[in-house]
Design a protein around this nucleic acid. Sequence first.
DNA 1: AGTCCACCTGACCGGTCGGTCAAGGGCGGC
DNA 2: GCCGCCCTTGACCGACCGGTCAGGTGGACT
Lengths: 178, 178
Amino acid sequence: MECGARLFAERGYHPTSVADIVATLGVGKGVFYWYFASKEELLAELLKASNHDLRKRQQQGIGDEADPVRRIELGIRASLAWFAEHREYFAIIQFAATDETFAPVLARNREISIADTIRHLKDGIVDGRIADRDPALLAHAIFGVVAELTRHALIDANLPVDEVADLCVAFCLEGLLG
Amino acid sequence: MECGARLFAERGYHPTSVADIVATLGVGKGVFYWYFASKEELLAELLKASNHDLRKRQQQGIGDEADPVRRIELGIRASLAWFAEHREYFAIIQFAATDETFAPVLARNREISIADTIRHLKDGIVDGRIADRDPALLAHAIFGVVAELTRHALIDANLPVDEVADLCVAFCLEGLLG
DNA sequence: AGTCCACCTGACCGGTCGGTCAAGGGCGGC
DNA sequence: GCCGCCCTTGACCGACCGGTCAGGTGGACT
């Protein structure tokens, strides 16, 4: 049923009416409200499911790697790989972040990912491998790179994930001067 | 008149009705449609004005600096400083990027900034100061860092611009391992 | 004072959309 | 064959909102 979510991605949340969704599915409106209490709940469900899936992928990607720097790298690669496979969710997440109703849960999701990254960063700083700078800001910086490269390189320019991931990791680890 | 734009930032575009705007201004609806052809035009005007102002600030910030690396640094600092002074526009721009109607002009604005950055990057690469990687992707990566740090550090956490700018520049130039 | 017009008002309209619900239909059990 | 239950339908409702416009209003000019 949540396949009808593609519409949110294609046309955006507000321009997609419940009537559109059920028409695409070829069913009546009643069946939609049988499964979801409201249109908002559908989006909330989508966000919850996608976040859960993304985090699972990140954890799989990182596995039991011990090196904190490499953990960060694997996290980045897993995130990009997931977005490459689930492009439709990027626009949905992007929109939800701008809507007062959904921003809180989005923010919480993000904070959880950020908190993970911060842990790896702190480990790396203790080891002396990572420069001693505010880990929270560094984590957000990485997040920003991943988000923007997802949007531009994966979704708009449709570049191969591996290339994008290589550059993303290189930039995050070594910066421009590398 | 465009001061009524604050409402878009506070509550978002869709939840803010034209009636809300004119009520806040204490005027009738007629006066709104005297100055703007539609609600959409107000947003478009806002986007145009803010982009123009931001670019002016970037150019002032860079001045006639010759070193390409330093030009990038100054551009980053100017952008962060501008957003720190115009927080209300961040949410508006963020939203507009998710709306089919406004995304094209947003995309064009961004591509212009990106193109500037790419020039500096290419100069730096030719000089051998900057690692030889796809300048377009690097420019987007920088863009992502600036956007995310603006959102989190400047707007949500309200940190001092200079601190954020220092870290942003350090991250972009040297990465995590710096 | 009278006239006119630029500017403004806010009731109103058409249309859309999220959400409801009475009616219908198919299917299993008796 | 009949009943009754559950799922489904889609016409309908109320609310809202962007946009219009007939009508006011006040000041400048005659």
